[in-house]
Simulated assay, not measured.
Amino acid sequence: MTKGGAIVRTGDKIGIKQLFDDDSSTYTYLLWDPDTKDAVVVDPVDIQVDRDIAAANELGLNLVYGVNTHAHADHITGTWLLKQKVKGLQSVISEASKAKADIHIHHGDRIVFGSRYIEARATPGHTEGCLSYVADDQSFVLTGDALLIMGCGRTDFQGGSAETLYESVHSQIFSLPDGTIVYPAHDYKGRTQSSVGDEKENNPRLGSGKTKAEYVEIMANLNLNYPKHIDVAVPANLRCGAPDV
């Protein structure tokens, strides 16, 4: 079929490269149209911007957007730095995040690069402004902190709500085909991906037939430490990663 003047062949996949930041255990993703090489970078980390640009250049990509799943609490986004170094790149985040960006998006909006796109699905609960991004062929979903591999993001700050996150994951992520690959924003055990089917069946917080009440009880008793970078990261991320001047 044709899209936007380009040929999309049956079986073609969006190009994807997963990059990792050791300090915050953050996954950054390069996504691109294999034909046009137009690309987006999702959840960049400020100290890894040169790495991301080098990876894009090595692949011959034209970076169009710097996208965030939400205003992170554990690292400063690299979108502002990317805008200084990549001509024409625009920053993207949800309107609900209340963070600065060139473009604010909502549930159902599409981020188009070349003839491909990712669709934004609102998945609040970890924060009020969380979005997950689904590939146009539903082959993968970038879940941010809403759904992690055999876990999920915490729900005790930044407008978080365990009840809301349960509904978000079940309605917007677990409704995808079982074979859809899950790419999270973080992993702390060296795992790189999962699948919707595996998470529905085995996730100890949200899967295995857990009821909302059971999930809320689990989240209420995590007793997690305060994130070590939150006091610096959140204000910076509300500025799109720009310095405080």
Rank of each mutant, 00 (worst) to 15 (best):
P124G: 13
G207A: 12
L19D: 02
C240V: 06
V232P: 12
A122R: 05
S168V: 08
A185R: 00
A185S: 03
K37D: 06
S168L: 01
P177F: 03
Y226Q: 08
I149H: 02
D231T: 05
C152D: 11
H104D: 02
D187N: 11
A185E: 00
D109L: 11
T10N: 15
I218W: 15
S161M: 10
P124K: 12
M219E: 05
V245I: 11
A122S: 04
H107F: 07
D35W: 15
K85S: 03
V196C: 14
V234H: 01
E95Y: 07
H107Y: 06
V232C: 12
L147R: 12
V41T: 01
K200P: 04
S161Q: 08
M219C: 05
E58N: 09
Y183E: 03
G11H: 00
A73Y: 00
G114H: 13
D43F: 03
D38R: 02
M1E: 09
D187Q: 03
Q138K: 12
S115V: 12
D23S: 01
H106G: 10
R116H: 09
D102Q: 10
E199I: 08
G78Q: 13
V196Y: 06
V141H: 15
V232S: 04
D46I: 14
K210G: 08
A39M: 06
N68L: 12
R9S: 05
E58S: 08
R191V: 10
Q48M: 03
M150H: 10
G5P: 08
L224R: 09
F20K: 11
M150D: 08
K13H: 10
H104E: 08
A99Y: 01
A101V: 01
P177N: 02
V42C: 03
R205E: 13
V40T: 00
C240G: 10
D145A: 05
K100R: 11
L165M: 07
S25T: 02
A71Q: 01
K210N: 13
F20Q: 13
D137T: 09
N202L: 14
L89C: 05
K83G: 11
V67N: 02
P235F: 02
E58Y: 13
E163G: 11
T180M: 11
M219P: 02
V216N: 10
L30P: 00
D23A: 08
E214T: 06
A39D: 01
V67A: 01
V216G: 06
L224V: 10
C152P: 05
Y183R: 08
D102S: 15
T69A: 00
S195M: 14
E95S: 04
S91A: 07
V42G: 02
V8H: 04
H186F: 03
N221G: 07
D137E: 15
Q84F: 10
R154E: 00
G11C: 02
N225L: 10
I218K: 07
Y166I: 12
E167L: 01
S94W: 03
K200W: 03
T69R: 05
D137Q: 07
G151E: 06
I118A: 05
S168A: 15
S94Q: 08
Y183N: 05
L59Y: 04
H75V: 03
